Amino acid sequence: MRKRSHRSRAVAAVTAAVVLGAAGCDALGGDGPGGSGARERKARPSASPTPVWDTSPASLAAVGDSITRGFDACSVLTDCPEVSWATGDSGEVNSVAVRLLGAKAATHSWNYAVTGARMADLPAQMARAAARRPTLVTVMAGANDACRVTAEAMTPVADFRAGFEEALRTLRRTAPKAQVYVASVPDLKRLWSQGRTNVLGKQVWKLGICPSMLGDADALDSAANLRRETVRQRVEDYNTVLEEVCAEDARCRFDGGAVHAFRFGTDQLSHWDWFHPSTNGQARLAEIAYRRITARGA
C-alpha cells in the first residue's frame, strides 16, 4: 500500500512538470525561456533610432570670413553677400540656403560672417547665429589665420583648435541640436599659383591681401618658397583640427577636405583680385556644401 502511494505521488509530480513545461512556465509569470513574454519580445520589432543628421534642415545661419561674405566677387574690395555660397540669393550661385529652403531662404537664413575674421572671432559670430536657433550652421574659417603679415604671425595650431572648440561650445549652449557643416580651408598656395600670372591681380595683392602667401608674388628664391610652404603646411594643420574637432560632435559634418582639394581655375577666381572666389567659384562652393549636407551617410 505504501509502495502504491509512493508511485502515485511520483506520477503526479512528473505529470505536473510536463504540464508546466508545455505551458512555457506561464505559472512563473511567462518570462521563462520560451515563455510568451520572451516570444513577444522577439517578435516585436525594435524602434528605429532617430537619425542625428537631418538632410532637410529648416533654417540656416552662416559664420566665417570674407569668402562667405562674397568679398571681391562683384566689385573690388567690397562684400557681395548676394552671391555668398551659403546664403546668397543670386540665381547664378544657387546657394545652400536656396537649395535647401527654397522660397523660405529669404526669411530663414542669416549671414553672420565678417570679412577679415579669424578663428578667434568665430565664438562671437556663433553666439549671434545660435540666437536664431537655426537647424543648420555653416562654417568656413581659417584662411585669415594663415593670411598674416608674415608666416611667423600665423595663428598657432593650438590656439586655432581652442577657438574652434569654443565656437562649438558657444553654439551648443543655446542651440544643442543645431547641425554644423564645416568647410575646409582652401589651398592658398594653389590660389597663388593661379593668380600670379595676372598683372592686375598682383597689383591688388599689394594692397595687403594675404601677405604671408601672396607677398613678393614673383619671387621664387629659397626664402620665398620656404615661406609659402610654411603657410601651406599650416593650412593643412588647420584642416586637421577642423576634422578632428568636428568628429567629436555627433551633429557636425566636415567636408572631408573637398574645398581644399578643389582646383580653382581662372573662371572660379575673382577678376578683381584673382584670389577670392568669383561668382562662379561661389557656385562651386555651394555645390560642394550641398552634396555633403544632403548625403545620407556620414
Results as ranks from 00 to 15, higher is better:
207 L>Q: 07
207 L>F: 06
208 G>C: 07
208 G>Q: 11
209 I>L: 14
210 C>N: 05
211 P>N: 14
211 P>D: 15
212 S>L: 03
212 S>N: 11
213 M>R: 00
215 G>S: 15
216 D>V: 02
216 D>L: 09
217 A>Y: 02
218 D>F: 06
220 L>T: 15
221 D>F: 04
222 S>H: 05
222 S>E: 11
222 S>P: 10
223 A>T: 14
223 A>M: 13
224 A>P: 01
226 L>H: 13
229 E>D: 12
229 E>Y: 06
229 E>A: 06
229 E>S: 08
230 T>L: 02
230 T>R: 11
230 T>G: 07
230 T>I: 08
231 V>T: 02
231 V>H: 02
231 V>C: 14
232 R>L: 06
233 Q>D: 03
235 V>I: 10
235 V>F: 12
235 V>E: 09
235 V>T: 10
236 E>K: 14
237 D>E: 15
238 Y>R: 12
238 Y>A: 03
238 Y>K: 10
238 Y>L: 14
239 N>S: 08
240 T>R: 15
240 T>G: 13
242 L>R: 00
242 L>E: 01
243 E>P: 01
245 V>T: 04
246 C>L: 07
246 C>V: 05
247 A>Q: 06
247 A>M: 03
247 A>C: 00
247 A>T: 09
248 E>S: 14
251 R>P: 00
251 R>H: 09
252 C>V: 04
253 R>L: 06
253 R>A: 02
254 F>A: 15
257 G>A: 09
258 A>Q: 14
258 A>Y: 09
258 A>M: 07
259 V>I: 14
260 H>F: 12
262 F>W: 11
262 F>C: 01
263 R>N: 13
264 F>K: 05
264 F>I: 08
264 F>E: 15
265 G>W: 08
265 G>T: 14
265 G>R: 04
266 T>D: 15
267 D>C: 06
268 Q>C: 10
269 L>N: 00
269 L>C: 01
270 S>T: 09
270 S>A: 15
271 H>Q: 12
271 H>A: 14
272 W>H: 12
272 W>Q: 13
273 D>V: 04
274 W>C: 05
